[in-house]
Write a protein that binds this DNA or RNA. Structure first.
Lengths: 262, 262
DNA sequence: TTGTATTGTGTTATTTTGACACAATAATTT
DNA sequence: AAATTATTGTGTCAAAATAACACAATACAA
């Protein structure tokens, strides 16, 4: 049993009274790298399974702020696009019984700390948020409870605890249907990018190939892209333009939705 | 002080232990009548303001089931289309302080019942659902806590408690942006209806007029409408066709969204 | 019989979509 | 230098969708 963990449990015991019972938040933090959508997961100590970063809500904290707090603690970034997408309230949620053996054993060891044990063993309703973040700007750090914190490709996910797989699936589904109202380009790509980067991103989200020519023409017609020069990659072919977003036009367009069939 | 209310408070006290703390549900129950969108509101006893029908979640109840329970109790109908749209978790939510004078006084009277008083005075996170219902099939009944339960046109709303106006606005906004994925026709209109009924419904939701001819042609092209004969209204003009929905085709279409610009 | 309001459908210009074509170009190879 | 290669920016063109308006059909009233 680690000393860190001992300390954490003791200090957590004092926090409990300041928390809202039955309520938690979870974040599906998405990034885009190497032409793949990735999600930030963490692996708890003594556990095989992975989990979405989540946390509890303070008595005097807005639900959205709780999600922000989790997000910042986990990625070290503020100013990330964050949006609530669903609240999960099934009966099977939470409760120690559903956790895997290692973690369960760990908690059983602390059964003498009734307050903490009782808290963790509660049923929680969790409000899930998705966050869109530039992977290159994040510095994932595992906290005291976790042994690892990593970006995982959504095409090859590890086993997740509880209903976290369901939550992730729903996040991706909502991402797709709300695509016309979400700043995925601005949030997931670096400052400058090529049209191919943007196309690959949309293909990753939609899960199907798009026609290059038509995609390019439509994107340009939206008027949200600004050319920034060319990318001399060193490859033996024509150099593509670099683009950045015109934030103002982008914002305005998103509010009305960009009525756009890919 | 009514006897009913006394009884209710006593029995509610016994229920409290079976409820999930900090969590509630609210329903935005929408209907369509006289070419207007309407919402089912109730007015609490001793209060001027109106409220969305809501309730608490039982320890052993799915969040969605709690919403269903509220809905059925209020409208007397099951099999209503119900969808979660947002969870509201601002700091100003709930707490007696925010209620109006009459209701506040009523609750102060029951201060001696500590358990009930403390419960009602808590901060609640509320998950909001919208429901789509055929007004002609509902029989709104005020419960013990309410003096009235009525359909109100969304164009002339009374004053609402707490953040219920915000919740309602968000419901209508989400209704609009998700229109291509929602069975508003099937849920809000009677079994048989005219093309004009359907058009007026879409106009009410979108808040703008639509071209009659184009609307008709597009709707027919979707293949979800079945002609059922003509409506001889007695008016001195051509009799319109009556339509009903082909449920199977409708369901299938909704899953993919009907990529439709009105 | 004529008039009226509303309906079902038609017409036409314009825009959008989808599938594919082709010349331009940065670096490599000959 | 010249040819080669992979990828890019843009063009073409038929098919479909959209928007605005037109017109004859019709159920009933006058």
């Amino acid at each position: 049993m680690s000393e860190d963990l001992e300390k954490f449990i003791t200090s957590f015991e004092m926090e409990i009274d300041g928390l809202l019972p039955s309520v938690s938040v979870d974040c599906v933090i998405l990034g885009f790298e190497a032409q793949e959508l990735k999600v930030l997961l963490l692996q708890w100590k003594n556990s095989e399974k992975w989990a979405l970063p989540g946390g509890f809500v303070k008595q005097n904290e807005h639900l959205d702020d709780a999600a922000l707090r989790v997000l910042e603690k986990r990625t070290g970034l503020s100013n990330i696009f964050l949006k609530q997408f669903h609240t999960f309230g099934s009966l099977e949620r939470s409760t120690i019984k559903k956790l895997d053996k290692g973690l369960k054993a760990l908690l059983e060891l602390h059964k003498q700390n009734e307050k903490v044990y009782e808290w963790v063993n509660r049923r929680f309703i969790t409000t899930a948020y998705f966050a869109l973040s530039d992977i290159r700007k994040t510095h994932p750090v595992p906290d005291v409870l976790s042994q690892r914190c990593e970006w995982k490709s959504i095409t090859s996910l590890p086993e997740l605890i509880l209903d976290h797989h369901t939550i992730l699936e729903k996040a991706l589904d909502d991402l797709r249907t709300q695509l016309n109202y979400l700043p995925i380009g601005q949030s997931l790509l670096p400052e400058k990018f090529t049209m191919q980067d943007l196309k690959k991103l949309y293909e990753a989200v939609l899960g199907r190939p798009l026609d290059r020519g038509n995609f390019q023409r439509k994107m340009l017609r939206l008027g949200i892209l600004v050319r920034q020069g060319k990318l001399m990659s060193g490859a033996s072919n024509k150099a593509p333009f670099l683009y950045s977003f015109d934030r103002k036009v982008y914002q305005k367009l998103l509010r009305e939705g960009m009525g756009f069939s890919y």
